[in-house]
Simulated assay, not measured.
Amino acid sequence: MNVDTLKQSVIDYSKEIGIDKIGFASADVFGELKERLKQQQSLGYQSGFEKGTLEERTEPNRLLPEAKSIISIAIAYPSRMKDAPKSTKESRRGIFCRASWGTDYHDVLRKKISKLAAFLKQQTPDLQSKLMVDTGELSDRAVAERAGIGFSGKNTSIITPEFGSFVYLGELITNIPFKPDSPIEEGCGECTKCMDACPTGALVQGGQLNAQRCIAFLTQTKDFLPDEFRDKIGNRVYGCDTCQMVCPWNKQVDFHLHPELEPEPEIAKPKLKPMLRISNRVFKETFGHISGSWRGKKPLQRNALIALGHFKDKTAVDELIPVMRQDPRPVIRGTAAWSLGKIGTEKAFDAIQEAMNEEENEQVLFEMEKGLQFKKLHEKEG
């Protein structure tokens, strides 16, 4: 089978196994990306979650010495939730970003790319390949852009003409010299809606993100959240969709093509109070199958505490007090104290004052002081 025929058979097979879009790229060095990554490093804009060296992230033959081409795939995911539960005064809810609504996409895409690799192996017994989804060294977006899956938007997402930016990306490096597809023309034009809407100014300029300020990154950190971002994250317990939701390319875009990627409303919009004291076992049973659980329960609990403060949820005071006093983790105790101060009832302030007599951790004590500072603000406003 010649390479052109094989390429068409791969495209046909990809449709059979539920791949929504497929493209082919050369395995040449990503020179432009390398320069951009060097700049990101020098500016301190990286998240720290990146895998591999600069060379591994931009030179496919470092990952597969015989690399000749890269197959890029895209899977569309929903942007709207049917029967979304409402947040009420008695039962406030947080929200996971859309990319974490269904079954962990890493698993879903790996299965599909593995099938693609097995299909290729049948046709080409001497196939060499390496698959990656998100956590690999290569930039999924750079590969997808080169393969014509979509263009790189000012919000740093790959935007496809068919599915907007609500797509998961993955790739398969191969030793087969497939003819590469052509990149798509950039389609943002003069639009800056994503940059204007970013809550923290993380989109420094079109196509450049300071990950250290990005809410999607910040919700995944495990330490105390810097003060300037606490009001900005609102009720987000994981991730952020703002720059995608305001994008004109995503207007009216909502695809429900894969049952395993459908949101489970009670998980995608969880009640906040039950998250505070959830056991490891229940956490894994409830959230373990979604991508938003990968950092464990601590960041999500910290974010839930901040969200309760954001809502000024007086019904949470009785649950926040034991968390502040008894949780073994300083970040959780301290954030609970901050949240109690933000809610601002007399009982909350009294509890913080009382807990300070027993607390020994300096960071927690500092957060308790911050919590008490809200009392002066409440008195001014009163």
Rank of each mutant, 00 (worst) to 15 (best):
Lys68Pro: 04
Lys68Ala: 03
Ser69Glu: 00
Ser69Ala: 09
Ile71Gln: 01
Ile71Tyr: 01
Ser72Lys: 05
Ile73Trp: 00
Ala74Ser: 14
Ala74Glu: 11
Ile75Lys: 12
Ile75Leu: 15
Ile75Pro: 12
Ala76Glu: 09
Ala76Asn: 06
Ala76Leu: 11
Ala76Gln: 06
Ala76Val: 09
Tyr77Gly: 05
Tyr77Trp: 08
Tyr77Asp: 02
Pro78Thr: 12
Pro78Lys: 14
Pro78Glu: 10
Ser79Phe: 03
Ser79Lys: 06
Ser79Arg: 15
Ser79Gly: 07
Arg80Met: 13
Arg80Gly: 01
Arg80Ile: 04
Met81Asp: 08
Met81Phe: 06
Met81Thr: 11
Met81Cys: 15
Met81Asn: 07
Lys82Gly: 04
Asp83Ile: 00
Asp83Tyr: 13
Pro85Asp: 07
Pro85Ile: 11
Pro85Gly: 10
Lys86Met: 08
Lys86Thr: 03
Ser87Glu: 01
Ser87Gln: 04
Ser87Asn: 09
Ser87Met: 04
Thr88Val: 11
Thr88Lys: 13
Thr88Trp: 07
Thr88Ile: 06
Thr88Ala: 12
Thr88Cys: 13
Lys89Pro: 05
Lys89Met: 08
Lys89Cys: 04
Lys89Val: 12
Glu90Ile: 02
Glu90Gly: 09
Glu90Met: 09
Glu90Tyr: 10
Ser91Arg: 11
Arg92Thr: 00
Arg92Gln: 10
Arg93Phe: 03
Arg93Gly: 05
Arg93Val: 06
Gly94Val: 03
Ile95Lys: 14
Ile95Trp: 08
Ile95Arg: 15
Ile95Ser: 07
Ile95Leu: 08
Phe96Met: 13
Phe96Ser: 01
Phe96Ile: 06
Phe96Thr: 02
Phe96Ala: 04
Cys97Ser: 15
Cys97Phe: 03
Cys97Glu: 13
Cys97Arg: 05
Arg98Met: 14
Arg98Cys: 14
Arg98Val: 10
Arg98Gly: 10
Arg98Glu: 06
Arg98Tyr: 02
Ala99Ile: 05
Ala99Val: 10
Ala99Lys: 04
Ala99Leu: 12
Ser100Gly: 14
Ser100Leu: 00
Trp101Glu: 02
Trp101Thr: 02
Trp101Asp: 05
Trp101Leu: 05
Trp101Gly: 10
Gly102Pro: 09
Gly102Trp: 02
Gly102Asp: 04
Gly102Tyr: 01
Thr103Leu: 13
Thr103Glu: 15
Asp104Val: 09
Tyr105Trp: 13
Tyr105Thr: 10
Tyr105Cys: 05
Tyr105Ala: 05
Tyr105Arg: 09
Tyr105Gln: 07
His106Ser: 08
His106Glu: 09
Asp107Asn: 14
Asp107Gly: 01
Asp107Leu: 05
